[in-house]
Computed example of a mutant assay.
Amino acid sequence: MSAAASLPLLDAGSRALLQGLGALHTVVVAAEPSGRVVFVHDPDGLLGSTDLENPDVSTRGTPAARAIVSALADARTQDEPLPLRVFPTADEAHQLRVFQTADEAPQPLRVALLDRNDEVAAPSDELRRKNEELETCVRSVSHDLRSPLVAVLGFTRLLRDEFGEPIGRTGQHFLDRIEQAGKNMERLLHDLLELTRMEETPNTPVHVNPAAVLQQLAAEKKLALDEARITLAFQNETPVVVCDRTRLYQLFSNLIGNAIRFVPNDGSGRIDVRIEDVEDGWQLDVDDNGPGVAEQDRARIFDPFRTAKHARTSTDGKKSSGLGLAIVHKIVEAHDGRIHVENTPSGGARFRIWLPRP
């Protein structure tokens, strides 16, 4: 089947998507959930003259055709929406990837992309270089902005102390607004620097008592917890974990700080932290009794600047930088661990982390 012959079967959005992919990839094949092939882009003839819907293709087709038919058949067995996946090919010269367009699209499709490995590697190297440049830029800008911000906050405090009476209550109110905005910016710059430093600062694994870390955090966050009437509960005795202590402190600090912004502040708010030995490492759970995380938000909740709609500003006016959970994710990755979010049986959020034994 030629690409031109199949295009009339497609809606305008799918047609534009596949034509765009055809300009970027060596081979593009799209099929409906039923298995009917509706688009083929193969200018180099890697699929031969094979009819991809012919049952014999799995044994008599070209290596590229066999790999694509097998991958699309495997995709049809998936009940969940299929993310981008890499499938094996008969040689090492090509890379095969398959993804599924959104179910809510007018015409959901399974799409196979076949590329030569050298064509895949070049964009990856370029993307890595661009990412490194971006991180360097963010680090530089965040550092350079701190000096004028310190000056703004310093002169704001000086103006309040020296001229508080002449400017009156209205002036004091404006100074408070300036100072709070400056502190929010200071927090954002701090978190941006932390996020960019993760890659270049190696972990220093030591034996850590998580209970001691949590006791330190409970003391530091006592004012915020008391103001919102939130209970923070954790074990007095916990298993010893091998990890970077500073990173574990940051991990718990960000997760507890995130939970404080979501749980009720009417006296019923509760955050529970548990650490358990498991067969191949340690499991860390941070639960709260807030509104939980909607299923459609869970996949991207660890993206930078991703905030949930139920979050509130803390009682002192502090706002989230939107980077706390991204930092947590980076810390877990740096320890070769895993993290995911789910809802507890009562409906609150549960952040579950697994850290491997060294």
Rank of each mutant, 00 (worst) to 15 (best):
117 N>K: 11
352 R>W: 08
287 D>S: 08
157 R>S: 06
166 P>Q: 01
122 A>Q: 02
124 S>P: 10
86 V>M: 06
233 A>R: 07
114 L>D: 01
283 Q>S: 10
339 I>R: 04
286 V>C: 01
87 F>D: 15
242 V>K: 04
225 L>S: 04
161 D>F: 07
148 P>E: 06
243 C>T: 02
291 P>H: 01
48 G>I: 06
167 I>F: 10
140 S>V: 05
75 A>I: 14
217 L>N: 02
239 P>Q: 01
174 F>Q: 05
170 T>C: 05
177 R>L: 09
159 L>K: 08
151 A>I: 12
205 P>E: 13
240 V>N: 04
102 A>F: 12
208 V>G: 14
219 A>R: 07
301 I>R: 00
356 P>N: 13
310 H>W: 05
124 S>R: 07
320 S>D: 14
134 L>A: 02
299 A>D: 08
336 D>G: 11
184 N>Q: 15
90 A>C: 13
50 T>P: 06
169 R>S: 13
183 K>C: 14
26 T>E: 10
136 T>G: 15
148 P>S: 08
100 Q>A: 11
43 P>R: 12
139 R>M: 15
267 G>R: 03
319 K>V: 10
42 D>T: 02
309 K>G: 06
75 A>D: 02
170 T>G: 05
198 M>D: 12
171 G>I: 01
207 H>G: 11
303 D>T: 15
274 R>T: 10
11 D>T: 10
243 C>I: 04
291 P>R: 02
242 V>Y: 05
16 A>L: 13
35 G>E: 14
174 F>S: 06
185 M>E: 12
48 G>K: 12
230 I>C: 02
259 A>L: 09
63 P>D: 07
70 S>L: 13
292 G>T: 01
340 H>E: 08
223 L>S: 06
